[in-house]
Computed example of a mutant assay.
Amino acid sequence: MLVLLPPSETKHPGGDGPPLDLGALSTPELTGVRTELVEALVELAGDVPGARAALGVSARQDGEIARNAELRTSATLPVLDRYTGVLYDALDVASLTRAQRARADARLAVGSALFGLVRGGDRIPAYRLSAGSALPGLPTLRAIWRPALEPVLAAEPGLVVDLRSGAYAALAPVAGAVTVQVLSERPDGTRSVVSHFNKATKGRLARLLATTTGEPADVVGLRRLLRRAGLHVEHAGGTALTLVEPAI
């Protein structure tokens, strides 16, 4: 089972690992695209006004551009320790046992605008690049990543659970992947998507899927696993599941 997560804009700074080694990352067939984008970001960082425009950041976020300038030399952290924010707070990898962390590193992957697809244990530096960023002189990130990344994901054995947000899922859709919509249900029965609530629930779901000793083979097996865990799961057919939780 492979669980695809979105990255986060916010990231833990620093690290305790050696500088970025693109050749050491999982899925080495993506090294060429990764190299192109790293070089483009480092070069762009030399033009601070241009970098602000391309990355969609303000002058108060110039530290993000400085991080990009040091992509090749800054310290690294494992992917699951690098990203922060609501989803990753709910995932809470720091509290996993050693065995659970090993399963998480094997099962969880992040769909990154810079690295394409990185596994939980891959070591990466802090960086700034979003799926919607437009780098000068290059095609859209979707046009860059889709031809390289889509075949990689299509060849993934076993069940793929795609928890990526729309912009990152668009970089390389996965045919047949299970998708999960999270709805918040009010006491009157009305439902809606709430961004913070959605991220937190997906973080808890990722934790469950990363640590379970079960290995669902299809959407029905996944639905069964989630219901056994006490989740309210609706399945109208196909590969789409809906998680419904009471509004807080």
Rank of each mutant, 00 (worst) to 15 (best):
A54N: 00
L22R: 06
V161A: 12
A206S: 13
E215D: 15
L153G: 09
G121K: 13
P6L: 04
P173D: 08
R60N: 13
D81Y: 00
T97K: 00
D92R: 14
G214H: 15
T211I: 07
A99I: 08
S195Q: 12
A69Y: 12
A217Q: 07
L91N: 09
T27M: 06
A134M: 10
A170P: 01
R186S: 14
V180K: 01
A217M: 09
A167N: 04
T212Y: 14
T35L: 00
E156D: 10
V180M: 15
K202V: 04
D162P: 07
V244C: 02
A170G: 00
P49N: 08
A51T: 01
V182K: 01
G17Q: 03
P136D: 12
A75D: 08
V244W: 09
A229S: 11
D92S: 10
G166R: 14
L241A: 00
S133W: 08
P125Q: 10
L226M: 11
L225V: 07
P78I: 05
S74C: 07
G32L: 13
A206L: 11
R207E: 12
T239E: 13
A109K: 09
A217K: 01
L5D: 15
L20C: 13
K199M: 07
Y127G: 05
G221K: 01
A90F: 11
L141Q: 12
Q100N: 04
S130W: 12
G50A: 04
P28E: 14
L20I: 07
T201K: 02
L5P: 02
G17Y: 06
L205K: 00
V152G: 12
S184E: 15
L25Y: 01
D188H: 03
R123M: 00
A155Y: 07
G63S: 14
A40D: 12
I124T: 12
V178K: 00
R146F: 11
L205R: 04
I65F: 09
G237Q: 11
A90I: 00
E9T: 06
A177V: 04
L41K: 03
T213N: 11
V219R: 02
E43Q: 09
L44A: 13
A59Y: 05
G121P: 02
A66E: 11
A200S: 14
L22G: 01
P139H: 04
L129Y: 08
A90R: 05
Y88E: 10
R119S: 03
P49Q: 10
V86S: 00
P147G: 14
R142Y: 06
A134E: 14
G132R: 10
S8E: 11
E245A: 03
G237D: 09
L71A: 08
A210H: 05
D92Y: 13
S195P: 07
L153Q: 00
Y168F: 13
N68M: 06
D16C: 01
A99W: 04
V194K: 04
P18K: 14
